[in-house]
Design a protein around this nucleic acid. Structure first.
Length: 470
RNA sequence: GACCCCAUCGUCUAGCCAGGUCAGGACGUCACCCUUUCAAGGUGAAGACACGGGUUCGAAUCCCGUUGGGGUCACCA
């Protein structure tokens, strides 16, 4: 049997982080078993579905690298098939028409709550003669659910969960206007798409019981369920769209590499022993439903950040350059010149060691691309007081003499000068850093010297020593 | 309210199913080392089995209860 999983978002908003993890788990499970991972857009709620949201979801999956197999299935296009199944259920006596008005239904719910009953619909029309139907009332179609006994689901994550059938009422299959309800659509689509494993948030756990009733009424094989715990916010409350959950694109915009987000998400609720950092290819080789935890996890941005820093450090300079260049161009409000690009590429090794995110990296790389004269920030300016300038002048004298300008040669020269002057290296290095970068924090100063080159370096120093009044 | 689920360091978790570990790791925090700044790296520290009963020679592991948290209760998905 080929494993088939699916991710079935409704396009009513961006792909939020919880949905992304659900998609990831489905993807991982399918890959692990050499199966298929399908995408179904549940757009039957025409009023709330938007094309922008649909696109955001596709883009989000794409960014994360979660490729789905085949074309996405649009649930709205399958309404006829859903109705066909509902009618088959009716013919077989497993469904019936219900003519209750919304008012009657509301009254039933109120009564059920009052009595603490789980059965919200009392079955008024279950065995009533349709001839009794009120004039002109359009009926809904309801499933004839079992009255007693219990339903059991052997969930791959939650274990065996049992619910008494008296908790499950006769759910609506077809609305009065003939359109299918979600409960029916999901079952029909999952069946028709040959889905073997349904991996989704555990907010669907109770739905699974209702859905299993439909499968059984149709005589279809019930797929395996795996209801994964939801992700909570840092405060322990449910992380939802209205509760501070962000779309994956928000994390992309914060400068987190996709592989960091995937790694983080994979590790949230799932584990493979003590392994913390691994590629999705590795995860796909390891992935197992049994190792998904049953308790909800909190979203921890510090941990994501740490993974982000790791992946940025590990990235090749070429790839990294391609990712930060647009960010730097945005800050400069212009495309990079060849010189700027050359400096950026040469400076990347030292830069990426220190960056927490791509945004961070772009900010810290900016000084390589700025044109003279630089404007030192407040802390840097402080280092460039009278004493600082004296040290800077000393450094300039030394550097002007350096032949064969490299990080190594400039370091040797400055160290020798510092020794000769009886100064600690830091006393000279900090003003130098302030002059060359406009900051107090940067990659190693000799590396900066090497990347900038002799004339740019001396020029930046001169800008401080002999400011030209414009 | 009814039904269902969950419970190990601040956070993510290993260990639980097949009782015996100084309850392990990672992130974060703190200290020290390295050091031209900041990171990275290295070393070390603090830090948890929610509570109460059982069962057992022995319980984080099995059972019951309590408390706490979460989810679901539509002609939404």
């Amino acid at each position: 049997m080929t494993v088939v999983t699916r991710f079935a978002p409704s396009p009513t908003g961006f792909l939020h982080i919880g949905g992304a993890r659900t998609a990831l788990f489905n993807w991982l499970f399918a890959r692990r078993h050499g199966g298929r991972f399908l995408l179904r857009i549940e757009d039957t709620d025409r009023a709330r579905s938007t094309d922008a949201a649909r696109q955001a979801i596709l883009d989000g999956l794409d960014w994360l690298g979660l490729e789905w197999d085949g074309a996405p299935v649009y649930q709205s296009a399958r309404a006829e098939r859903h109705a066909e199944v509902a009618l088959a259920l009716l013919d077989a006596g497993n469904a019936y028409r219900c003519y209750c008005s919304p008012e009657e239904l509301a009254a039933m719910r109120e009564a059920a709550r009052k009595w603490g009953s789980g059965r919200l619909y009392d079955g008024t029309w279950r065995d009533r003669d349709p001839a009794d139907a009120p004039e002109g009332a359009a009926p809904v179609l309801r499933l004839r659910a079992p009255l007693d006994g219990e339903s059991v689901i052997d969930d791959a994550v939650q274990g065996r969960v049992t619910v008494h059938n008296d908790q499950l009422d006769d759910m609506v299959l077809l609305r009065a206007d003939g359109t299918p309800t979600y409960m029916l659509s999901v079952v029909v689509d999952d069946h028709d798409m040959d889905v073997t494993h349904i991996v989704r948030g555990d907010d669907h756990l109770t739905n699974a019981f209702r859905q299993s009733l439909i499968y059984r009424a149709m005589g279809w094989a019930v797929p395996a369920f795996a209801h994964i715990p939801l992700i909570h916010g840092p405060d322990g409350a449910k992380l939802s769209k209205r509760h501070g959950a962000l779309g994956v694109e928000a994390y992309r915009d914060m400068g987190f590499p996709a592989e960091a987000v995937c790694n983080y998400l994979a590790r949230l609720g799932w584990s493979h022993g003590d392994d913390e950092i691994f590629s999705m290819a590795q995860a796909a080789a390891w992935f197992d439903l049994a190792n998904i935890g049953k308790s909800p996890a909190r979203f921890d941005i510090a941990r994501l950040t740490s993974l982000s820093a790791h992946y940025i450090r590990a990235m090749t300079d070429d790839r990294l350059a391609g990712m930060v260049e647009p960010l730097i161009a945005g800050r400069l409000a212009s495309r990079l010149t060849d010189t700027q690009r050359t400096r950026l590429n040469a400076g990347l090794p030292g830069l990426k060691e220190r960056a927490k995110s791509l945004v961070d990296l772009a900010d810290s790389a900016l000084f390589y691309c700025r044109s003279r004269p630089l404007e030192p920030d407040a802390k840097a300016a402080k280092l460039l007081d009278g004493a600082g300038k004296a040290k800077l002048a000393l450094a300039r004298e030394t550097l002007a003499e350096v032949e064969g300008w490299t990080a190594e040669s400039t370091e040797a020269a400055i160290r020798a000068t510092a020794d000769a002057a009886g100064e600690k290296l830091g006393k000279i290095a900090q003003p130098l850093r302030a002059a060359l970068t406009g900051r107090t924090v940067s990659p190693g100063i000799f590396e900066v010297l090497g990347v900038l080159g002799k004339s740019e370096s001396l020029g930046r120093i001169d800008d401080i020593l002999e400011p030209t009044v414009v």
